[in-house]
Amino acid sequence: MTLTIEKIRTTNPIILNVANMVTPQHVADAINFIGGSPIMFTDPREAGDLTGISNALVLNLGSTNPEAFKSVISSGREANKKDIPVVVDPVAIGASKIRDTNFKLLSESVKIAAIRGNISEIAHIADVAWASKGIDAGQDSGDKIAIAKTAAIKTGAFIIISGEQDIVTDGHSVFIIQNGNPQFATNVGAGDMLDGIIGVALATEFNLESCAFGTALLSVAGEIAAQEYPNQPYSFFNAVFDTLAQLDDTTFQKYAKIIQE
């Protein structure tokens, strides 16, 4: 992999975000601490101006009100005009008709570079049955790598399945990230933070390897934070942010477990 934390911080890419109403501060902090520069927006009238100064766009579909979705579509189209990567989080797709409709409209209107979700969300996109619906992935049988590949081929986007092991694929090559900590699952917003960090990585260097690198950054930070707070999820979460801010390439390489299938 040619992407490095040093390169991210030297480049300092601007990441425009249509964030879930629950987590904008977490997302902005994660982007900032790893070396990007976040912009959060909700007004679709700003889409052209703000996309024009940005290096990647991250779209969280957790807010389904019409004005939020106007911002999603308008900024996505502007990002395509500028040819900057669009990262999408299809929050709880499959849980309601409106979420399915919004994702369908977005995918028909905007070229998506990367989609990050849990196994339930990605299985829904791949048209594969899975047990759980919502933001939390359930336990079910099935080949997660095959599901990720199917979703990638269907959408033409990089697919990231986050979980105990993260899977990153373009439908052909596959990276498995074997870092992380279970306390991420108890903190709302960890996935949204990952969306932003993936946006930072792809804005700095656009390829599948960078997508895997960005995915591993948060997992490694969690693994390091858990050494100090193994059973204190709130303190752990704060330590994740501290670790992201302090993380360097030497430390990252020491901990990173990125396996190419």
Rank of each mutant, 00 (worst) to 15 (best):
A95W: 05
S141R: 08
I119M: 04
Q183N: 15
A92Q: 02
T64S: 15
M21S: 15
I160W: 03
N32Y: 14
P90R: 04
I258K: 04
T64F: 10
A152K: 00
G94H: 02
Y234V: 15
V18D: 04
V128T: 04
A129F: 12
T42R: 14
A131F: 07
I167M: 09
S235P: 10
I161E: 00
F184E: 06
S96H: 10
V188W: 13
A126G: 06
D140I: 04
D127N: 11
V86G: 01
T23S: 06
D136G: 11
V174C: 11
D83S: 10
T101G: 10
P24S: 05
G189H: 12
F241C: 09
A201K: 06
M40C: 11
S96M: 13
D83L: 11
D248E: 09
D166I: 06
G52K: 07
E6M: 10
P230W: 14
V72Q: 02
V88I: 04
I160C: 08
G163D: 04
D43K: 03
T64D: 14
F241S: 10
D83Y: 09
I224T: 01
F175Q: 02
G180L: 00
G196Y: 00
E67L: 15
P66I: 08
G52F: 05
E108K: 12
N102C: 08
V240E: 06
P66M: 11
V200R: 00
I145Q: 03
D89H: 02
F252Q: 12
I98W: 10
G62Q: 07
A256Q: 10
V200T: 02
Q25T: 15
G134H: 03
R77S: 09
V174T: 15
N238Q: 14
R116Q: 09
I15S: 03
I259P: 08
A126R: 01
I135N: 04
E46K: 02
V58A: 03
Y234T: 15
A131G: 06
S71I: 04
S37H: 08
I53K: 08
Q253P: 08
S96Q: 07
S74N: 14
D49W: 09
A226V: 06
G36N: 01
P233H: 14
I39H: 07
L59A: 03
E261V: 15
H26T: 15
L105R: 14
A28C: 12
G62V: 07
D242H: 11
D29I: 14
K82Y: 02
D166W: 05
K111V: 05
A225Q: 08
R77F: 07
D143V: 03
G117E: 00
L244A: 05
E78N: 14
D248N: 14
T10F: 11
M21Q: 13
P85A: 10
A123E: 05
F237G: 07
